[in-house]
């Protein structure tokens, strides 16, 4: 092949390959879904001998659960706080549980309505939120356990379970 032809073909081939690379498609689909994320793991503080609490003032860390909703009004969030320990040392006396679930950060200002519209039942352990606006919402869950009548919790490891549900409606 003559040198003159080669000089023409090399730039032409480069242009063709560039064009081919530019045409590689990336496809994706955004579909209705609910994603539950454990944003912050909770931790019980032990401010007094008879109390375990996730609130910051008591030395605990409030667990935070994030929900991502793609389609408005497709799901409701149901969060159930602990009413017993899933693992603990032997506790012969009763444990009194108090808890609350509140709306924390939101990606849309209108999501503050989730808080005013929430439904609480099951002795305040279960809270239901109607997810009427698409976006992300963070729920703060506080849990306090008090042992007996001013009795000290036995030393050991304590674990409690929060259930976060997303129910299509």
């Amino acid at each position: 092949m003559k040198l003159k032809n080669l000089l023409f073909l090399i730039p032409a081939a480069t242009v063709l390959s560039t064009n081919a690379a530019a045409n590689i498609p990336i496809s994706g689909t955004v579909e209705s879904k609910c994603v539950i994320m454990t944003d912050t793991d909770g931790l019980y503080g032990n401010p007094t001998a008879d109390k375990l609490s996730t609130t910051a003032a008591d030395g605990g860390v409030v667990p935070i659960i994030r929900y991502d909703i793609i389609t408005a009004s497709a799901y409701k969030a149901v969060i159930t706080t602990p009413s017993s320990f899933s693992s603990s040392p032997n506790l012969p006396d009763t444990v009194d549980w108090t808890s609350s679930t509140t709306v924390g950060q939101t990606s849309d200002a209108g999501m503050s309505a989730f808080e005013s519209g929430k439904v609480v039942y099951n002795n305040s352990h279960t809270t239901e939120f109607d997810l009427t606006i698409a976006g992300s919402v963070w729920f703060n869950v506080s849990s306090v356990a008090e042992y007996g009548y001013g009795k000290a919790f036995p030393s050991g490891n304590y674990t409690a379970l929060i259930t976060a549900e997303c129910i299509a409606q």
């Binding site: 674990t159 409690a160 379970l161 259930t163 997303c166 299509a168």
Partner: peptide, 12 residues
């Protein structure tokens, strides 16, 4: 052995 564990449930 985390102190507070989250069980997640999603229903379609």
């Amino acid at each position: 052995k985390d102190t507070s564990i989250v069980a997640s449930r999603i229903c379609s």
